[in-house]
């Protein structure tokens, strides 16, 4: 089966600093793929390259058979890649429900004139937006909070709301940037369940950047490890766990050869 997302030789330079130096990997459709590495390794930068926030100096991003390198973020999103952010970026002043509805651009067909004249097509579309938003909020246990301002939610719920909002785009691929950050172990365990649900029930492919190794090892089927913008290892979790370069990157040089 050909890959849903495929990066080849991606390079990103900021001023004189090479943040990413020739990273490539393939994400199989229907898989849960982990992108890991120490702080500052370039994981979020890779997400930003995939979603069009940054244009890479070299290399290619191919999604679903189409070269999306250098596309504008909104176009990439419309094409089927949705994401969450490491430092939660909700529309803080809007309600929980509206946060989700905003991302409905893929089912948005009526024109500005329909909205101004309040046509029947407009009313129908608004109901559809609301129905879908409620459906997603239901999945993440947020439906009771639909009318609350997003900024009033506790941290863990805000992270889940970000995922619900991303799903409103009906994406094929979901990029999660540290979804377990700041969660306690119970919340993290629930998150694992939800990620599996997204893949099994909603048929999504998931790529996640995560520092919580128990979450990574539990849910990911394939891992790609980067350090200082370079690939240092890839493979299934069992292999990565004992990979000497990975241990060295996380624990320092001294750890080389030490049994985990």
């Amino acid at each position: 089966m050909s890959a849903l997302l495929s990066l080849t030789g991606v390079e990103k330079v900021f001023g004189g600093l090479r943040a990413i130096g020739g990273v490539g990997f393939d994400v199989a459709p229907g898989s849960i793929f982990g992108l890991i590495g120490p702080n500052g390794a370039g994981k979020t930068t890779l997400f930003n390259v995939i979603t069009g926030v940054y244009r890479p100096e070299r290399g290619k991003v191919v999604f679903d058979g189409e070269d999306v390198t250098g596309w504008a973020p909104s176009r990439v999103a419309l094409r089927g890649i949705a994401r969450t952010f490491q430092n939660i970026r909700l529309f803080r002043g809007m309600t929980v429900e509206q946060n989700v509805m905003v991302a409905g651009h893929r089912i948005h067909e009526t024109s500005l004139l329909d909205a101004v004249l309040r046509t029947r097509a407009f009313a129908k579309e608004e109901r559809e937006f609301q129905r879908r938003a409620r459906e997603l909020l239901e999945i993440f246990g947020l439906v009771a909070l639909a009318r609350e301002p997003a900024e009033s939610l506790p941290y863990g719920s805000q992270r889940r709301l970000e995922i619900a909002r991303a799903l409103m785009l009906s994406p094929k691929l979901l990029l999660l940037d540290e979804p377990a950050a700041g969660m306690n172990s119970q919340e993290a365990a629930d998150l694992e369940q939800q990620i599996r649900f997204l893949r099994d029930e909603l048929k999504l492919t998931v790529v996640l950047v995560e520092h919580n190794m128990s979450v990574v090892m539990n849910v990911c089927e394939a891992l790609h490890v980067v350090d200082h913008g370079e690939t240092i290892a890839e493979g299934p979790p069992a292999v990565i766990k004992t990979h000497p370069k990975v241990l060295a990157a996380y624990l320092g040089r001294e750890a080389e050869g030490v049994e985990p």
Binding site: A77, R89, V102, H105, R106
Partner: peptide, 8 residues
């Protein structure tokens, strides 16, 4: 930035 990532 988030609006753009949501296809706006």
């Amino acid at each position: 930035v988030a609006a753009e990532a949501m296809a706006t």
